[in-house]
Nucleic acid binder design. Structure first.
Ligand code: MN
Ligand code: MN
Ligand code: ZN
Ligand code: ZN
Lengths: 142, 142
DNA sequence: GACTAGAGTTAGAATAATTCCAAACTCCAC
DNA sequence: GTGGAGTTTGGAATTATTCTAACTCTAGTC
């Protein structure tokens, strides 16, 4: 079983679970996100998937990305004005945005920290998700 | 010394510090943010300040907000696609976004927690700001 | 007190990202 | 094979923001 097969299966499964079909467009979009995990925009995804599916439209890329987000296969990320970015990393993680280069990196979060952060919420606030964005510069070892 | 005078002074000071003038437009925009701290959009600010300055344009509201952000009197907040929101709370704080109502609340952050969060950054990542957004529902006591 | 250069404001045009729409297409289940 | 839901597509529409060029104000300078 290749990683690719595995991805296809998990994609097909999750789509089926939501009563949706597995289409070539949805596959190439999802594969593009898994292949280069640099938090691309819809436009960037469009450019990449055209290599595989030259006739795919930008509207379809938006549709597929939205579908993947609905199926919890992909996270939509917004940390500044500008195009939404997409991330296939399902593990709880924060994002580091390098202001100099514009690059975005995943930062793993220890599970303990998340509950510690939730502790700052006063009673009456019930969070089901936390987004953490670091902004700064990266140096040397990357 | 009224709070209003105090605000005007700190505004005038910070503007002067950046070599900028204190204009009626900048004052009403800043005052609007301080008066109702509900993280309004530029459009909402525009609607509010028109009561004081009926001829102010939306472009000017955008200009003033940008100026206030540059002067570190106001934070621009983006946690989802949609208009940028503005926050005059200068203390380190997180945001709680109520998905049901769309309302955004400030959540104070103990200083210790911030450095604890920064500890998760691997070497080579140097963050000069952290944004934390909670998403969920608020109940009862608000 | 008028003069001027630069800073600030304004309305409207332009841009960028996304969503909407209606038509064409695909895939099964019957 | 047909019908119908689900999907894709190109282009129009929408939304938020930025740009532009003209106008206005203000702080010095004479
Ligand atoms: Mn950036
Ligand atoms: Mn919302
Ligand atoms: Zn990510
Ligand atoms: Zn705030």
């Amino acid at each position: 079983m290749t990683p690719n097969t595995l991805n296809s299966e998990s994609l097909a499964q999750k789509l089926a679970h939501s009563g949706l079909r597995n289409t070539p467009q949805r596959e190439v979009v999802y594969t593009a996100l898994l292949t280069k995990r640099d938090h691309p925009t819809a436009d960037e995804v469009h450019a990449r998937v055209r290599a595989d599916l030259p006739t795919i439209s930008l509207a379809t890329v938006y549709n597929c990305l939205e579908t993947l987000v609905q199926c919890d296969l992909v996270r939509a990320v917004n940390f500044e004005r500008g195009p939404t970015r997409y991330c296939p990393n399902l593990a709880p993680h924060a994002h580091f945005h390098d202001e100099a280069t514009g690059a975005t990196f995943d930062i793993d979060l220890p599970t303990g920290l998340i509950s510690k952060i939730k502790d700052v919420l006063p009673p009456g606030y019930d969070a089901d998700a936390i987004d953490i964005i670091f902004r700064g510069k990266t140096t040397a070892t990357r």
